[in-house]
Design a protein around this nucleic acid. Structure first.
Lengths: 116, 116
DNA sequence: TTTATTTGTTCAGGATTATGGAACTAATAA
DNA sequence: TTATTAGTTCCATAATCCTGAACAAATAAA
């Protein structure tokens, strides 16, 4: 298990990011990661454990997030420590990612709140 | 050829929008539509003509944009007039779509500008 | 050291989705 | 009518996605 591939900032594209976040599982993972980082002073992690999905599936989802440039995965013992690359990304993509996650969080908080 | 289906605002999701815009052809179409509207005082169109892709493919792309809630298509004679639903969408999704298109336009303007 | 456990990746298949040519529909023009 | 123009639908192929099974790598236990 070698260090996984991370694209350079110049290789990251808007389309790649949108594709990565267009999956319900992946945007949920990314939003959790982002909020965990906010809560924990920017050093955070999230492993594949406590899984509701098969681990091969989750492994693929993490790989797609990583190859889209959204997260960084570093090995620590047997685990992978995942964190967002939001600082770099905000530099390149402005408000985009923040706006996406805000809209997503708002949408999720409104579930079940619809009028009858 | 009946009036195509347009989802209600409540049916539109962040994931659906991201999926629709994660395709290079579709984000290009949407960005063109949005900029045409800006240039033309908010009444605009874009047909499938002058196509670089097969029309069946483009028809599918327009359908996906429409069903994601991003555009509205109205029949005028033999043509479809397409426009963005940005006013409604900004209400619901805040800066998200604007930020995506800004990042995309910036990215496209930087193509070929990379250092050697 | 071995052996077991834990974490994650890779592979292979079946399922799903995307692409685009051909045939079709609908509105207008000749 | 008959043509022309604009899009849609259908279908076969291609590409992608999902996941169980087998695998690899690091640690813990014997």
């Amino acid at each position: 298990m070698r260090t996984p591939y991370h694209p350079a900032l110049e290789e990251i594209t808007v389309e790649g990011i949108l594709h990565a976040l267009s999956d319900p599982v992946r945007i949920e993972i990314y939003a959790n990661l982002a909020s965990a980082e906010c809560a924990k002073n920017c050093s955070t992690f999230l492993t594949i454990q406590k899984r509701l999905l098969p681990k091969s599936t989750l492994s693929q989802h993490f790989r797609i997030l990583r190859e889209a440039g959204l997260i960084r995965s570093e090995r620590k013992g047997v685990e992978l420590i995942n964190s967002t690359r939001c600082t770099e990304l905000n530099d390149r993509f402005g408000m985009m990612i923040k706006a996406i996650i805000e809209a997503y969080v708002k949408q999720q908080s409104n579930i079940g709140t619809a009028s009858p």
